[in-house]
């Protein structure tokens, strides 16, 4: 498998200047981060507020270019200004607030917006829009006004707008943060399906740990640095470290860990409710034997 997205020693500094243009202070939002994401993977970047995860995400489709280091998207260096539009086509981005990223006055028009920007022919735009809307299960809403949709539906429209551009990877910057539980499930189901069925690489930035149990790889960020990296099983086995970083763990993992600490011999980490139930059952059996 080839590396679709790769960052090498990326550092990004926000420079604040006073009225005379003198540097007041420098905030290092991303500090020497090297990650690589393989084609077709679904990965998550987690970290508490201000950990630099959103800033890092903006590097992955050339909205920001690194102060130091290099980012490659599908082999293209993002600091190459002549290729910026290629990169944005290959790596689509969905933002947090569903209201602020819908441009069109009708759902289908919004989904077609990115294609129009790429200069695709009218007939093909329509084909792509129909396919994209179907893939997120929003086809029947194609003629309605975005203002009448729920938050989850709006986010799915935003995702469809990206899919219509036929990207290799989609970066989602806290797409569920402003949604209710039902909306969250809709969005997560939609992106999981895209990853499994259409083989689109997904980079999910989130706070919500329950959403990332099923991903291939997790990157944990703190104060701009990459502090942990691994499969969900590897990352969630270090409950204490995550808590120290100000992050929670999935409920089942936490309960499993507490049971283990109080003497129940279950194998850690536990990721899902079902796993927890079967582990407890097994542990009790072995105790009585």
């Amino acid at each position: 498998m080839n590396k679709l997205v790769k960052t090498q020693d990326v550092t990004y500094e926000y420079v604040r200047r006073d009225d005379d243009g003198n540097v007041e202070n420098i905030v290092t939002a991303v500090d020497d981060v090297s990650i690589s994401i393989e084609d077709g993977q679904m990965v998550a970047i987690i970290g508490h507020n201000g950990s630099g995860k959103s800033t890092l995400a903006k590097h992955l489709n050339a909205l920001l270019t690194p102060t130091e280091g290099t980012v490659w998207v599908d082999g293209i260096d993002t600091s190459d200004e002549s290729r910026v539009w290629d990169i944005r086509q290959k790596a689509g981005m969905v933002l947090q607030n569903p209201d602020n990223q819908i441009v069109g006055q009708v759902v289908e028009e919004d989904v077609g917006f990115g294609c129009e920007n790429l200069g695709i022919k009218t007939e093909e735009i329509w084909e792509r829009v129909v396919d994209a809307l179907k893939s997120v299960d929003m086809y029947e809403y194609r003629g309605s006004s975005p203002n009448k949709l729920s938050g989850g539906q709006k986010q799915r429209v935003s995702i469809a707008g990206i899919i219509a551009m036929k990207p290799k990877c989609i970066i989602l910057d806290e797409p569920t943060a402003m949604l209710d539980p039902k909306g969250r499930k809709e969005v997560i189901d939609a992106i999981t399906r895209l990853n499994k069925e259409e083989n689109v690489t997904i980079i999910l930035i989130t706070h919500n740990m329950e959403e990332i149990i099923g991903v291939d790889r997790i990157f944990v960020m703190d104060k701009g640095k990459l502090v942990m990296e691994g499969t969900p099983r590897e990352v969630f086995s270090e409950v204490d470290k995550l808590t120290e970083l100000g992050l929670t763990v999935p409920e089942a993992t936490l309960i499993g860990k507490k049971l283990y600490d109080s003497g129940l011999p279950i194998s850690l980490p536990v990721l899902t409710k079902e796993e927890l139930v079967s582990e407890i059952g097994r542990a009790r059996l072995s105790k009585f034997r």
Binding site: L63, E109, G114, E116, N117, K121, I125, G161
Partner: peptide, 16 residues
């Protein structure tokens, strides 16, 4: 969001 969706002004845009 518009920049991320490759909006670069009216030139070269097609119409849906």
């Amino acid at each position: 969001a518009m920049e991320a969706r490759a909006y670069r002004g009216g030139d070269g845009r097609t119409k849906m």
